[in-house]
Design a protein around this nucleic acid. Structure first.
Ligand code: FES
Ligand code: FES
Lengths: 157, 157
DNA sequence: TAATAGCCGAGTAATTCTGTCAAGTATTAG
DNA sequence: CTAATACTTGACAGAATTACTCGGCTATTA
């Protein structure tokens, strides 16, 4: 229950790759494809959506690729997913693009609403920076280094 | 993003109706159908699943219907949804029935896992009793009565 | 000017969702 | 006993969504 589509998942992983490549300049679709095991054609579609949303910008021609429009800590996972999958809406009744007639007097409405807000604040609080730190953590694990706070909390839970 | 299927939603609403009818004895499919606007045929499918799962039991013949197997505070929304929609699994990688080969070294794995656990604890903490109290709350609103705690918290959030 | 790299719209196969339908079985009132 | 009530079961089908692929185009630069 409550699956995320592959589009959303791949989107987050692609954004992570672009974020990770910051120091090397633009990251190409091909590189992302190889590192994350997603086809080039599918990534084109996904990255195009994210570019139109203003989360990344593209550089054409040789040496080109994609770069983040803002710094990693300013791009939340929620922002990425919203562009690719629309707003968090546990039920169609809660989707601003749809709506419901029976809202008043519906016992479950508040329940789904609260759950949705819970999920959304989680996703909006987590950013690409946290993912980068989580990756560092994995790379340096078992070496006694200091662990980034938010990810360590994830690890515990 | 992250939609709940209608099956799960209807299932929760049906369980609420059965819980609400406790004092009157078994609740028939037809009654649930009328009160919750869901077809009898579809409810048959849903309630059968819930019965096989042991959440409700059925009484056949005239005067029959469905009753809860346990008291409302012992039936969580999570338990209902798990039967109808399978385990919470944001990604296929987290579904115990599927799994993933790239788990080690996957940056997003911990993220989805933590989100899933967050959702699950929310759903497991909320019970039919809370829905019943929420319903009372709606019915008595604007009359200055005392409001049940958990639902009032929902209302605030 | 050729190679690189992103841009764009359409289309399609597979899967999942959202139900319906028909033919049963069990129980009870009369 | 029998008729009415109500749940039981399995199959099936249309609609919607997902998860992609494909072909051709445009911009940039060495
Ligand atoms: S049916 Fe739409 S809010 Fe409950
Ligand atoms: S790809 Fe399966 S856990 Fe990340």
């Amino acid at each position: 229950m409550l699956r995320l589509s592959t589009k959303g998942q791949y989107g987050v992983r692609a954004m992570f790759e672009i974020a990770r490549g910051i120091s090397r300049g633009p990251t190409t679709i091909k590189e992302i494809s190889e590192r994350q095991d997603v086809s080039v054609a599918y990534l084109e579609q996904i990255l195009n959506t994210l570019r139109k949303a203003g989360l990344i910008s593209s550089v054409r021609g040789p040496g080109g690729g994609y770069v983040l429009s803002r710094s990693p800590e300013k791009i939340s996972i929620g922002a990425i997913l919203r562009e690719l999958e629309g707003p968090v809406a546990i039920t169609s009744c809660l989707d601003p693009r749809e709506g419901c007639l029976r809202v008043d007097g519906c016992v479950t409405h508040l329940l789904w609403k609260a759950l949705g807000e819970n999920i959304e604040s989680f996703l909006d609080d987590m950013t690409l920076k946290d993912l980068l730190e989580g990756n560092d953590l994995m790379a340096t694990q078992r070496r006694g280094r200091r662990q980034p706070e938010k990810i360590r909390m994830l690890h515990k839970s």
